[in-house]
């Protein structure tokens, strides 16, 4: 009799537990639970954030952070065998694919800003950069003001483009713009002398220079012309998913583990590429500390 009662009580508790739990699930977590898989969107050439490693799988700083989030999802949903579907995305496809549910999380080098937040949501800031100018050594260009009467390549639709155009307008600089489709083309325009500077994120310029034929020919100049915090993207109106993701990131920031992950991708030789040599900036260090929210 006693044994039966125990089993019955246990069963009721178990039922109540699963019931309550199932009722809590919604949005992305529910979709993952129902479909048995999570679709991770990743960039293919954003070194060292998300790019294709030598074995053909996406690797990088943001990708590693995403896998940490996915590990937590596996634990929370009790799905140790959760399948991770890898979906390559570009800057044009990332929003629609996230909005229509093709991907559940985007791991790359996406700037976190308020305009974009009307369509999607972000996890905590994991990297901070800004616009700088990549030029050939000996060009005499030191700051954006020196670009007056010169030509600059801008990547179509980027925050860098907005920053440069806005400053040029405010200061009345006559700059000739050459719009490019992606970073390699911007670099090619600089390399072939079509433009005098390529304006893009500082971190990307560092990557472009280290992987160029002759890194000693180029330099990064000027002050930061914009403030570009990067974040992992998730779907909007999904507090449960955001809480889960931000808890993972806060844990990494609180424990200091994120510093090790940062060093691994930004200061050492990385899979298939040379090191990008970008030590942790004081601003990002403070950002990690501030975002290490307590429980």
């Amino acid at each position: 009799m006693f044994k039966k009662t125990v089993i019955l009580i246990a069963a009721v508790f178990a039922l109540a537990a699963t019931d309550g739990y199932a009722a809590e699930l919604y949005g992305t977590l529910k979709k993952i639970k129902d479909s048995g898989q999570i679709a991770m969107g990743h960039r293919e050439a954003s070194v060292p954030f998300a790019y294709m490693g030598p074995d053909g799988k996406p690797v990088g700083y943001t990708v590693e952070l995403c896998y940490r989030v996915i590990d937590r999802i596996k634990k929370t949903l009790k799905m140790p065998n959760l399948k991770v579907k890898l979906v390559p995305v570009t800057s044009q496809t990332r929003i629609p694919l996230l909005a229509n549910g093709t991907i559940d999380i985007e791991c790359g080098s996406t700037t976190n800003n308020l305009t974009r937040s009307k369509q999607i949501d972000y996890l905590a800031v994991t990297f901070i950069t800004g616009t700088k100018l990549g030029v050939k050594k000996g060009s005499g260009i030191k700051e954006i003001e020196d670009l007056d009467g010169k030509a600059v390549a801008l990547s179509l639709g980027t925050t860098n483009e907005k920053a440069i155009k806005r400053i040029a307008k405010a200061k009345g600089l006559k700059i000739k713009y050459h719009m490019v489709k992606d970073h390699p083309q911007g670099w090619l325009a600089l390399d072939t002398g079509r433009v005098d500077a390529y304006a893009t994120d500082h971190s990307l310029l560092a990557g472009l220079i280290t992987s160029s034929k002759d890194p000693s020919k180029y330099e990064i100049v000027g002050r930061f012309l914009s403030y570009d915090p990067y974040s992992i993207m998730i779907r909007r109106d999904d507090s449960a998913m955001r809480l889960l993701g931000n808890s993972v990131l806060a844990d990494l920031m609180r424990s200091g583990e994120i510093l090790k992950i940062y060093d691994k991708w930004f200061t050492k030789k990385i899979p298939g590429k040379p090191s990008v040599e970008l030590p942790l900036s004081p601003t990002l260090k403070v950002a990690f500390e501030v975002q290490a929210l307590p429980y």
Partner: peptide, 27 residues
Amino acid sequence: EPGTPGSGATEFGGGMGQTFDTGAECA
């Protein structure tokens, strides 16, 4: 003005006070 050095605590001239786009619907 974006990128004015010393307008904030960080090397970015601060996220404070600096933006390249307006908050307006029709920026």
